[in-house]
Amino acid sequence: MRIRALVIRIIRQFLRDKRTLALLIVAPLLVLSLMYLVFDGDDYVPKLGTVDLPDAVVQQLEKGSVDLHSYPNTAEADAALQAQDIDGYLSLDGTQPHLKLEGSEPSKNRAVQMLVARTFSDLTSDRAQAGTAGMPKIEPKVDYLHGGEDMTTFDSLGPIFIGVFAFFFVFLIAGVSFLKERTSGTLERLLATPIRRWEIVVGYMVGFGIFMGIQAVLIATYCIHVLGLMMDGSLGLVLLVTLLLAAAALSLGMLLSTLANTEFQMIQFIPIVIVPQIFFSGLFDLDTMSPWISWLSHIMPLTYGSEALKNIMLRGEGWSGIASDTYVLIGISAVFIAANVLALRKYRKI
């Protein structure tokens, strides 16, 4: 009954606090929409300079989507490159094609390199078909196990972002709410009633859980149906993982709030607790990092959450594909919850 009283109180406070409600529900949708706009934009059209190229090559280049600029010599092309009018230029070094890139923007480099590579491979295959020169070149046919040619960056990062935002906003709001409970003296008042320490923690988990559930449903359905995020698996599993991730964030936020004395000190945990987790959650390829760094990812809840979300949404896996990640998330939350019950001992021994 005491837990019920606590849950009702938390719900009432939430409904009165419109800003916090907006932070929990509207902010993730807004940020995800922006992400969608950033990552799902049109393909970049590379700006390529040409210096004294054979007509056949230029014609072939023009077949692709490219913004071509022609220069009489390499000196002028270099100047244009310097002024960033072009991303790179193609010239002939005798018979050897030479590509010089501006080089400061990896995505543009890639776009230019792909264009040039495709042009030359098309050229050679055209000649092979015409029977004019050299070896016939075999164009590889590309097949995809997951995703496909139309899979955008947003599709591949989407599951991670769903996890990141569920985690981040719940962590912040739970931490600050529990901090307020402590600094306003209501925690002491609460502990002057016969409520048990674990009842406080469970009451918080359930009360916040209701809003976390609403948030999870909104984020997931918005991303999938409005933003058109790739989704091969079951929505129920996505919600389960999002909720578990939020539970870990809630218990961790509560726990860390006991180490903070002001809201600002709570904000200071973001670069320590949230930002590293975002880096290690799969945005970057961990296989190429040194082993001790990738080991760090094993202690971070977001690693498991985003791995499970990717398995469901991109690889279409069912329960068996996410079971181990789910168990780890439950374990992490259980440890944090127990730690919270212990941490409350600081305020009341019994």
Binding site: R9, R12, Q13, R16, D17, S184, G185, T186, R189, A192
Partner: peptide
């Protein structure tokens, strides 16, 4: 019945 020195009340309620 314990009444603390600070008014430990939930302001939103």
């Amino acid at each position: 019945g314990y009444m603390a020195q600070s008014d430990a009340l939930y302001m939103e309620l």
